[in-house]
Design a binder for these strands. Structure first.
Lengths: 99, 99
DNA sequence: GCCAAGTTTGGCAATTTTGTCAAATACGAA
DNA sequence: TTCGTATTTGACAAAATTGCCAAACTTGGC
């Protein structure tokens, strides 16, 4: 496994390793949303949300398109549900016993 | 989705969001290994590797057992290959075009 | 008991990530 | 063009993560 490849993979993982970004990913799994829509969901400054989205887009998780004044974001990968199922499974198990 | 649950999920994701930890996970997918074995693989200080392993264990990705003076670590979840396949797919796609 | 090998823990500086404000940009409507 | 809404970018302080060293455990063999 090449170093550059591992770094890309880590960048992909880090892009979801944040509460707001994980919630954004879940929301986009249900359909396209604007930056404002997502801010209403996760809170915080609009510029913060915009930066989260840039990060996720650079990593490859999401795509965007312009629609009037808005920028609509949507999932770019079909494997998110599978990914989340795996995470959920482990999260439930680890919260049972934090020894 | 509850706040505590999201935090647990983020902890699980973060546990693989590091080059050394991702390589450790891949290595353990092939079988049990000691801390020393893993240090030989990823380099760095032994204590650093040990801390990575503690983090991954707390998150729920791995388990360990004592065997003489050694501590043998192994994967605790079956979904790692699925997880990695998803990450690889996105990593390959995003490295095509970093616009 | 004592020693050596293997591992973990505590402390701490260096680096990276995060969030907010202000300013800049993009676009449609009047 | 000018205005108003939507979004992005730059700068910077606060917070979290990382990696190394030294010291502390733990276990098996003598």
């Amino acid at each position: 496994m090449q170093v550059a490849m591992v770094q890309d993979q880590v960048r992909v993982i880090k892009a979801l390793a944040h509460p707001a970004r994980l919630e954004i990913a879940r929301a986009l799994a249900e359909g396209e949303k604007s930056v404002g829509d997502l801010q209403a969901l996760v809170g915080g400054d609009l510029s913060t949300v915009s930066k989260h989205l840039t990060l996720m887009r650079r990593a490859g998780w999401i795509d965007c398109r312009k629609h009037g004044q808005q920028v609509l974001y949507r999932l770019a990968c079909a494997c998110l549900p599978t990914f989340l199922r795996c995470i959920d499974e482990i999260a439930v198990r680890s919260s049972d016993c934090d020894c």
